[in-house]
């Protein structure tokens, strides 16, 4: 199955189960969870179902396109089901059948894996789903976001698209993945991988990144004063990506990391608080 068919099949599968097909967020994020379609929509009482692809940047994981498994920017397919339905595991497993897996021939099981993001003030319980010994999905019942307890609870399913596609195609190097019948993954992303790594590991001017981090924080604070939910959150995302770049450069000590994470969390928490205030003031469900 080509990578793009995998995406189409999964999006279609989830769309038929009531998920809105959102578009990838147009900013640098480290994971699909940071997309407002997840982070804000899991807060509050309103039901919500969505599916979207989210290219996710993890500078520290970049390997100059030399490692067959590791990427500066990988691709997640994210599903949110709020509230989580009683048959959520079965629906998820059905999605694996939809991409052509015979679950009696393969081995699929659920191993405990609890997720947390200190930056987002978020955590959840759940599993990593393994397919023949390979982790293919992070399955999480969101318990908290922005430091707020959640009720109802959303299920978050995050498919690692490259891994899954590599397995389905029997390919041992991510850059050899067939995107469609004519184009390979490497042709699309190799140059970007190499350049991004050059920037993140060698070129990035750390003193300027430190300045940017503080500037973004100030601008986020400015937005918060004006009670702007999304703009303040977006500056929080910019802080997060800047932090990740600093981290990849080895420019942060353990103590600094803790402090920087606390500063980001504060912005995100305030955005979440504003969102909830607005949501509570809105029309009744």
């Amino acid at each position: 199955m080509f990578l793009q068919d995998l995406i189409l099949t999964l999006e279609q599968y989830w769309a038929r189960r009531g998920c809105v097909i959102e578009q990838p967020y147009d900013m640098e994020v480290g994971a699909g969870t940071m997309h407002p379609a997840t982070f804000f929509r899991v807060l509050g009482l309103r039901p919500w179902r969505t599916v979207y692809v989210q290219p996710s940047r993890r500078p520290a994981d970049g390997r100059f396109a030399e490692n067959p498994y590791r990427l500066f920017r990988h691709t997640q397919l994210q599903v949110i089901l709020k509230p989580s339905p009683p048959d959520v595991q079965e629906i998820y497993l059905e999605s694996l059948r939809a991409i052509g897996l015979d679950l009696r021939q393969h081995d699929v099981h659920f191993e405990e894996d609890n997720w947390e993001s200190p930056t987002l003030g978020a955590w959840g319980t759940g599993w990593q789903v393994t397919l023949d010994g390979l982790e293919i999905t992070q399955f999480t019942y969101f318990q908290q976001a922005g430091g707020f307890d959640l009720k109802p609870i959303a299920a978050e399913l995050t498919y690692g698209l490259e891994r899954l596609a590599m397995y389905l195609q029997g390919v041992s190097n991510v850059f050899d993945l067939a995107w469609n019948e004519g184009i390979r993954y490497g042709e699309i992303s190799r140059d970007a991988e190499v350049e991004s790594c050059q920037y993140a590991f060698r070129v990035a001017e750390t003193s300027r990144l430190w300045q940017l981090f503080s500037l973004y924080e100030e601008e986020a604070g400015h937005c918060l004063k004006e009670k702007l939910v999304l703009p303040s959150y977006e500056y929080g995302l910019k802080m997060s990506h800047t932090f990740n770049l600093l981290d990849a450069r080895g420019a942060t000590s353990v103590a600094q990391r803790t402090e920087l994470i606390a500063r980001m969390r504060e912005v995100v928490r305030q955005s979440a608080r504003l969102y909830l205030e607005r949501e509570n003031a809105g029309p009744a469900l």
Binding site: P83, Y141, L150, K151
Partner: peptide, 9 residues
């Protein structure tokens, strides 16, 4: 040791 909520919570 660790508990969780689901669905309507």
């Amino acid at each position: 040791p660790k508990l969780m909520r689901w669905g309507e919570g």
